[in-house]
Design a protein around this nucleic acid. Sequence first.
DNA 1: CCGGGGTCGTGACACCTGTCACGGCCAGGA
DNA 2: TCCTGGCCGTGACAGGTGTCACGACCCCGG
Lengths: 204, 204
Amino acid sequence: MSKTIRVLLADDQALVRGALAALLALEPDLEVVAEVGRGDEVVGAARAARADVCLLDIEMPGIDGIAAAAAVRDALPGVRTLVVTTFGRPGYLRRALEAGASGFVVKDTPSRQLAEAVRRVHAGLRVVDPSLATESLVDGANPLTEREREVLRVALGGGPVATIAASVHLSPGTVRNHLSSAIGKTNTSTRAEAARVAQERGWL
Amino acid sequence: MSKTIRVLLADDQALVRGALAALLALEPDLEVVAEVGRGDEVVGAARAARADVCLLDIEMPGIDGIAAAAAVRDALPGVRTLVVTTFGRPGYLRRALEAGASGFVVKDTPSRQLAEAVRRVHAGLRVVDPSLATESLVDGANPLTEREREVLRVALGGGPVATIAASVHLSPGTVRNHLSSAIGKTNTSTRAEAARVAQERGWL
DNA sequence: CCGGGGTCGTGACACCTGTCACGGCCAGGA
DNA sequence: TCCTGGCCGTGACAGGTGTCACGACCCCGG
């Protein structure tokens, strides 16, 4: 039996992907068996390479890392996933865990700890950045409604209400109502600010 | 004489920093002699470690990678700098070269090419992502005025005009004039959109 | 069965914003 | 010297925006 842990790397930036591969290659008990740059290639590559653990970035073309984690959970129940992300947004952590991820690591943790996190995840343990876990609790759950999120995502572009309304196929008046509600829930005063805050909290 | 190239790594994300170090350590002729996580520590660490080439990320606390490149050029004339960034924004390339950087690489280039880029820079050559170079030419120079950039940077937050005006110590009317001018130069219709576009172009 | 909440829309109101015209100040180039 | 251009401010106008009240529909849990 091979005792090495077979790792799949998913990150849209090729340079980071290669660098992480070099980092993990230093560990004798780890082996990078696949590298992909898109979220929708994760399941196929993981199956083909018989990966044990998938290291997933969140920001990726195709589907994002959180959705990829859910896809892996559904298609390959024995494979663990570890989400590695640039932004320590509280909402990301919650959504990643709901998607079945076994671990959540921010990219500014010391590089020494990455291999250890992979081992822990492979052993069936949960790995969660402790500072982020507390922050996630105090912020509470996402208060935004589905429509409010949809409208805010478009509002990130910064265009006028008419543009947003056309893009979501709603009346301008309804869009303004949703935006007003979102502004209240984010304690802001303009839709641009509300969109930015929601984005930073990982609510979109 | 030592024939190895002494490299300094600057990136705010410790995981990426460590991974890049592992990647460069694979090359026998390269040696990572310093790692920093802030832009304002680059010059001191480069001098102390007698670095030949500085690999600088743009997004960093303290001062950004472009300003750090300028600081290295002024303080350590013999040291070359290579800017490595996540976002391939045309304005970044222009500003990096004006700051005396010898190279500009985007983070989604293949990892194999990084070591080669370091060698080229050390040899006195320029390394520039070719697709970005053409894009930088068609976009032309930054048309925004100093005040317009300052106002737009604050406008990124999304707050109302009164907040922006207070933050830059200007009259609300003047702020609206600057914003209107910036909206025209970016071919947009709201200040939020103008701020986003200017940000994406690297004009801020 | 009756609430409660999300969704969609309308209408009205006060306020904010984007635009334009105008004036004044100061630096640098023709 | 004049003149162009950036900078700062005011005033006014039309249109956009945030808020509220109201009504309607649907679904779900009590």
